[in-house]
Every structure is written in structure tokens, then in C-alpha cells.
């Protein structure tokens, strides 16, 4: 497991009392936490528990009904996400953040070559030299264990596991500080999942990333995360150190989740 950076560093992202209603229906309620570089937070819960809503709020893709998300920019300023202009938010998304979707097709441009998918993010941060962009794309394909000679093929020619690794390369090429992951291993074969998890674990540790990963798979949470928040019906019902939550679950629902898997 990657090791977090020292406690003295101020939070990179802080959520305070985040609440979302869709009309009368609760999306999530009163969620507060903070995360620093080098830390991996897993948000676990079943479908409909509010974890995807929370991810959308945290990444500024959905306005909150109440509460706020504060983010420390590279310039060291603490900004309220809701107060960012659309251009600023887009810039964050293209440069300082990554978002790894469960469905790689949502995170990739399926009609563009693998090299183009990776290079596009680089161009968004100002890279202009074709040779340098291509060299960096090749390097990243190699880092995510994709044969660089396949750089000119579109993701449609790739397997599911390769697409997911390409999505990770596209996200990490700009050296973001915060990466959101939504069920990154969902829908993959078990052996493919294992390889992807090993890769993510290594990259997160090497790059000192902050990661907020939404998963219903407690094995993924155990392998990747330092902390867990368990959500049910829009609320955080238990949170803590990952091994404490999984080995000594307190809430009835967490006990149910833990007891429902073969080997937590």
C-alpha cells in the first residue's frame, strides 16, 4: 500500500457538509472529509447508496444542494469549487485532476488513436512539439503495459483491460494531483482486474497521488485505500482506517457487506 505524506501538509481537497437532493429524493447528505496527496480514500456501498452522486459533487460535475468543496490549487490557493468559472473548472479537469470511469468508452475518445488519446491531455497543458508528445505517449503506453507499437490503433481495437489501462495513461500523463476513480475494475475479468489493481497501486505510490475511488468491491478497497467511507442511502454510516473498518466493522450495514464476501 502506498504511504501517505506527512500529516503537516494541508488538505488538497476538503468536503464540508455536502448534500444533494434531486427534487425530494436524497442523493447524499452531510458528507465531510478531507484528503491529502498520497492518500487513497475508498467510498464503498451498493448501487443507489449515493457514492456516485458524491463523486460527481466532489469533481464539480454536479452542483451541491448544500455544503462546499474546497480545493488547494497548484498555486497554493484554497478555492471553493462552486465559485470557479467554467473555464477554470475545465482547466482543473484537464490538468490537475484525472477521472477514471468504469466504462472506458466514457473516458476515452474511441475514434482517436491511443497516442492521440494520451497526447490530447498533453496538448491541453500546452505541449506543442509532435515528437515530444508522441515520445511521452509511447512512454506512458509502456508504463501502463501497452505495447507502444500499437500507438496508432484506436481503443476500439483494444481489449477491455487495455482500454482501462489506456484510460489511466490518458489521465496520468499530465501528472495530476487528484484522481477520481469510479469502479475502475468493474466489468473486467478477475485476472485483468488483478493486473489493473497492481498497476494502479504502483502508479499511485510512485506519483504520490490523492485518489478518491468509488467501489462496491471491498477487496479493491482493501488493496488500494488507506481509509474507507461506507455509504448507505446517501449517508456515511461508518468511516475509518481501511483495515479497522473491514476487520472490525461496527455498523450493521458494514457487517453485512463484509460478511457477504468470501474473503474480505
Amino acid at each position: 500500500m502506498p504511504m501517505p505524506i506527512p500529516i503537516s501538509t494541508p488538505p488538497l481537497l476538503e468536503a464540508r457538509g455536502l448534500t444533494k437532493f434531486y427534487g425530494d429524493r436524497l442523493g447524499c447528505r452531510d458528507v465531510s472529509f478531507d484528503i491529502r496527496e498520497g492518500e487513497v480514500l475508498a467510498i464503498v456501498g451498493e448501487s443507489g447508496s449515493g457514492k456516485s452522486t458524491l463523486l460527481s459533487l466532489l469533481s464539480g460535475q454536479l452542483p451541491a444542494s448544500a455544503g462546499e468543496v474546497l480545493y488547494r490549487t497548484r498555486a497554493g490557493e484554497i478555492r471553493d469549487l462552486a465559485a470557479l468559472s467554467e473555464a477554470e473548472r475545465r482547466f482543473l479537469f484537464r490538468t490537475d485532476w484525472g477521472f477514471v470511469h468504469q466504462d472506458a468508452a466514457r473516458g476515452l475518445r474511441m475514434g482517436v488513436s491511443a497516442g492521440g488519446n494520451v497526447g490530447e491531455r498533453l496538448m491541453a497543458v500546452g505541449a506543442r512539439s509532435y515528437g515530444a508528445i508522441r515520445a511521452k505517449a509511447e512512454d506512458w503506453l509502456d508504463r501502463v503495459e501497452i505495447d507502444p507499437t500499437r500507438i496508432d490503433e484506436p481503443p476500439t481495437a483494444y481489449s477491455g483491460g487495455m482500454r482501462q489501462r489506456l484510460q489511466i495513461a490518458r489521465n496520468l500523463v499530465t501528472a495530476p494531483r487528484l484522481v477520481f476513480m469510479d469502479e475502475p475494475t468493474g466489468g473486467l475479468d478477475v485476472s485483468v482486474q488483478a493486473r489493473l489493481l497492481d498497476l494502479v497501486r504502483r502508479l499511485v505510490a510512485d506519483m504520490g497521488l490523492a485518489v478518491i475511488v468509488v467501489t462496491h468491491d471491498l477487496a479493491v478497497a482493501r488493496l488500494l485505500s488507506h481509509r474507507i467511507m461506507v455509504m448507505k442511502q446517501g449517508r456515511v454510516i461508518e468511516e475509518g482506517l481501511t483495515d479497522r473498518v473491514l476487520d472490525d466493522p461496527r455498523a450493521a450495514y458494514t457487517q453485512l457487506l463484509v460478511s457477504s464476501i468470501l474473503q474480505p
Partner: peptide, 9 residues
């Protein structure tokens, strides 16, 4: 959790 991870390290 952060303090406990610090202790463990």
C-alpha cells in the same frame, strides 16, 4: 486514521 498510519510507519 492518518495518525494511526503515522504511528505504524
Amino acid at each position: 486514521p492518518r495518525e494511526i498510519l503515522g504511528l505504524r510507519r
